[in-house]
């Protein structure tokens, strides 16, 4: 439980001077040599070697969206020979409130023998796939699936 005596920050509040010993973490940003809060929440500091990481934490869960390189959990909704559509359920262990649409392309399924991939043998609707986001396309997010139900190959 968060104790009320912890320091509370609101967005735009100046926290401290920004130098080599200070790292601005989640919920903060740096501007003209100072670290400012960008979230409303409690100020926490962690020391890492000789540096101090400054973070602002909220009581509610973080607003998280899929970004490039994030590991996401998806459910397959639609499969066709070239790609399969899926809905992203969680990002890095944090469940999303609303799912995002995603796409696993045929060539992104595994690293070797890319031309021999048969989508119908890899995915079925309803499968849960853990994948890494490769890029933002103009239409969908593309994924490189890194782990598959019933199979034991792992590619990134």
């Amino acid at each position: 439980m968060s104790a009320p005596m912890e320091k509370v920050c609101v967005p735009g509040q100046r926290i401290c001077r920004h130098d080599e010993k200070v790292v601005s973490g989640n919920g903060t940003y740096t501007r003209s040599g100072f670290v400012y809060a960008s979230l409303a929440g409690y100020l926490t500091t962690k020391s890492d070697k000789d540096q101090v990481i400054i973070e602002v934490k909220t009581d509610t869960e973080l607003n998280i969206v899929p970004t490039v390189d994030a590991v996401v959990t998806t459910r397959v909704t639609n499969v066709n020979p070239r790609f399969c559509k899926c809905s992203i359920l969680s990002v890095g262990g944090i469940t999303l409130k609303e799912p995002f649409r995603g796409l696993i392309r045929k060539e992104d399924v595994r690293a070797t023998e890319k031309d021999k991939v048969e989508m119908y043998k890899c995915f079925r609707p309803g499968d849960i796939v853990v994948a890494r986001v490769v890029s933002f396309s103009s239409e969908y997010r593309r994924h490189n699936s890194s782990f598959l139900r019933k199979s034991n190959f792992l590619t990134i």
């Binding site: 609101v10 967005p11 735009g12 919920g27 940003y29 501007r31 400012y36 960008s38 979230l39 409303a40 929440g41 909220t58 509610t60 973080l62 607003n63």
Partner: peptide, 11 residues
């Protein structure tokens, strides 16, 4: 917005 936990430079 601040209550929703959206990152902001300032209020």
């Amino acid at each position: 917005l601040a209550n929703a936990g959206v990152d902001m430079y300032d209020l």
